[in-house]
Each structure stands twice: as C-alpha cells, then as structure tokens.
Amino acid sequence: MKVKQISVFLENTTGRLAEVTKTIAEAGINLRAISIADTADFGILRMIVDKPDRAMKVLKESEFTAKLTDVIGIVLNDKPGGLLTVMEIFNRDGVNIEYLYSSLIKEDESVVIIFKVEDIEHGLGIVEKAGLEAIASF
C-alpha cells in the first residue's frame, strides 16, 4: 500500500521550520516521520502525518508551497541487516530509490522505513512479491 507524504518548500532562513511545525501542531496533527533534503539555498521538508489531508489544508492556508507524493513505508526487523534485505531485493529487481528515511514508529522488534522510488507501482509489486509488509497508513 502507498503512504501519502507531504513535502514543503523551505528557504534556508531561520525560523521557517519552526513555522511549519507550529502550523501542524496547532491543527492537532501528529508527525509520524520527518526528514529534510537541503541544498545551499533551500530545503525540502518531507513528512508523514496521521492526517495528511488536514495537514495539506492548514499548510496551504498558511501559504506554504506543499505537495502530496506517494511513498512506500516498509516494516523491517530492527536488527543488523534489516535494511539490507530490502536493498538486495530492490537491487536485484531494478527498483530505483530516490531517497529514504526512517519513521518515528518503533514497535517491538520492527521499524518503518520510508522509500521514495522512481516507479512506485513497480516498487510496490516487488515489495509484495517478496513478502515484505508495506503499511497503508499511520
């Protein structure tokens, strides 16, 4: 299953990340995963939240440039070689990873890693065929 990720454009200026966080918090939205990609001039904040549609609404009302993208959240064993299992499968079956980051969720012996792949349908097919668990929502 696909997960909805929200990305927000941020200039590299003080306080902008705090603004986004505040907007999300005040709307009672909980963050489930977060990462930032940065260049010399700007950054892209990527996050998974419990209420993506509501988050999009409040971000736009606060005039942020935000966008929804489909990503895959794969449940992995939290032990050495956990990530390697997926990497080997993706490598073997030609799934191109654009980026990945870890979620804030940890239950028992497992973690959720967020993958953005070039071709999501292809990627999901491989994940399912390999018997890996892709979560639907948080």
Binding site: F9, A37, T39, T65, K67, E98
Partner: peptide
C-alpha cells in the same frame, strides 16, 4: 517564488 505547479519533493527537480 516556488509555485505549486513546479514544486517537487526532490531537490534535483528544483535544481
């Protein structure tokens, strides 16, 4: 200004 029409979740697209 980065418009929604060309905003992307990937830095390389914006570059």
């Amino acid at each position: 200004e980065v418009e929604e029409s060309f905003f992307s979740d990937e830095t390389k697209d914006l570059e």
